[in-house]
Nucleic acid binder design. Structure first.
Length: 350
RNA sequence: UUUCCUAUCGCUGG
């Protein structure tokens, strides 16, 4: 069991969730009993894979086997609520946690903080922060970064920067998460100049940029239409020993789509595949939208077919991208068919 | 420290 737990941990850390699930089955076929750690691991895996009922199903199974949940279990469950913004569920779990004698700690609070931030409940997030201070759990780097991310998402980049300054005042060192989050926040708010200031501050503070940081910069330059600068970033991080990841590729596809650069778009997609990357759901959605913006519904729909053939399930964004692509060309009848398809699937049109 | 929390990519208007 210990060995399997190690293997499942490795798969989970590398995003190989299907492999983790297979290992979980395999160990039981071999007659090994999953323990609390195994269940905690798998709850986390199901949490990112969804759907939610799979998570609760596993939790029930765990209790039926007489394995008592611990703090890790509850923290994992609360964290899993983020996927579908299940704030009510999270509160419920939080209460159960206390009722069975597990003590919520700073990780629990940070998980709640993130859930509220990501689901647009800024007021609740601030309440949680105050609760933390009242309960003697001082906010740490993760707490601040979580809030900075929430502000950035809400377009409140000034507040985000102010919070970073608060960190400095309190002697909490901003890290690469802090700066990357701020970069993206400024970019989303349409303040690339501010973003560059942050990037400079980051380097002056001796904080080393990583792939996430570079990906943010690529998006920023791409949206500004500064492709030479964008490619410079691309080359720079490669020479620093980083390899583009799927986010980098998706970002470049998105940028060329937004600028209607059909040739470059196809070229980058080719390079991405040549580099051995398998398109994920976001890649497909990006491509559908990108080809449509380049004026090629045909290619957009080919991509959609390829996605279905690959076994990936379209989500709301995918369907909306397809609907947009068809509508741009006035293909109403096809669009209506997709809308029906959507209702038949797991997606409610918004 | 075999398990929990934070950053980077996708859909809509003009």
């Amino acid at each position: 069991t210990y060995a399997y737990n190690l293997l499942i941990t490795a798969c989970s850390k590398n995003g190989k969730y299907d492999d983790a699930t297979l290992l979980f089955q395999e160990m039981q076929e071999e007659g090994l009993e999953p323990d609390r750690v195994t269940y905690n691991l798998m709850l986390s895996v199901y949490g990112v894979m969804g759907p939610w009922h799979r998570v609760t199903g596993l939790f029930d199974e765990m209790e039926n086997r007489g394995i008592r949940p611990d703090e890790y279990t509850y923290d994992t469950l609360i964290s899993a609520c983020r996927r579908d913004s299940l704030c009510g569920e999270a509160i419920h779990i939080f209460n159960e946690m206390k009722a069975v004698g597990c003590k919520p700690d700073r990780v629990t609070d940070n998980s709640l903080l993130d859930l509220y931030g990501k689901s647009g409940h800024g007021d609740e997030a601030l309440n949680t922060l105050q609760e933390m201070e009242k309960n003697g759990y001082l906010p740490n780097t993760v707490s601040y970064n979580t809030l900075i991310s929430a502000y950035g998402r809400a377009g409140l980049y000034c507040e985000a920067i102010a919070l970073k300054d608060t960190m400095l005042e309190k002697g909490i060192r901003p890290d690469v998460f802090t700066y990357s989050s701020l970069l993206s926040g400024c970019e989303k708010a349409g303040r690339p100049g501010k973003a560059m200031e942050i990037f400079k501050e980051m380097k002056d503070a001796g904080c080393t940029p990583n792939l996430c940081t570079y990906n943010s910069l690529i998006v920023m330059y791409g949206k500004k239409g500064e492709f030479e600068e964008m490619m410079k970033v691309f080359d720079e991080f490669r020479s620093n020993g980083y390899t583009p990841d799927i986010v980098t590729w998706n970002a470049m596809l998105s940028v060329f789509g937004q600028n209607g650069m059909h040739v470059e778009l196809s070229q980058v997609f080719k390079e991405m595949k040549a580099a051995g990357f398998v398109p994920n759901r976001e890649t497909f959605t990006t491509l559908i939208c990108a080809y449509s913006r380049c004026g090629s519904v045909e290619q957009a729909m080919e991509i959609y077919s390829a996605m279905l053939k690959s076994g990936l399930c379209p989500d709301l964004s995918t369907y909306n991208a397809v609907l947009t692509a068809l509508s741009r060309e006035g293909l109403w009848r096809q669009a209506e068919k997709v809308l029906i398809e959507m209702r038949g699937g797991c997606c409610k049109p918004n």
